[in-house]
């Protein structure tokens, strides 16, 4: 009796989790599937590279000025 009760509860829980899985929150799966996400990453990486080049050049210039002093 007790065993059947536990299996019944487990079955109900399993049914619930199965339902929860079908209603998954919406994510940008299409963006990943067709690879367009790489476009976004490339754009961001380019901007970041630009900022870093700017910072490194400024840092170099500053070092030069400090050495001349």
């Amino acid at each position: 009796m007790r065993k059947t009760f536990i299996t019944a509860i487990l079955l109900v829980l399993a049914a619930f989790t199965a339902r929860a899985q079908t209603q998954e929150p919406e994510m940008a799966d299409a963006l990943r599937a067709n690879g367009k996400i790489y476009v976004v990453v490339t754009v961001l990486a380019t901007i970041f590279a630009g900022i870093i080049i700017f910072l490194v050049r400024l840092d170099r210039k500053m070092t030069k000025i400090e050495k001349n002093n």
Binding site: E24, P25, E26, M27, A28, I37, V40, V41, L44, A45, F48, A49, I52
Partner: peptide
Amino acid sequence: VGYTVIAGFLIPVPRLDILNE
């Protein structure tokens, strides 16, 4: 930071309501 910009968009994240991506 370069790793963050790249991996931050490519590594999978948990699927959550409201927050989504």
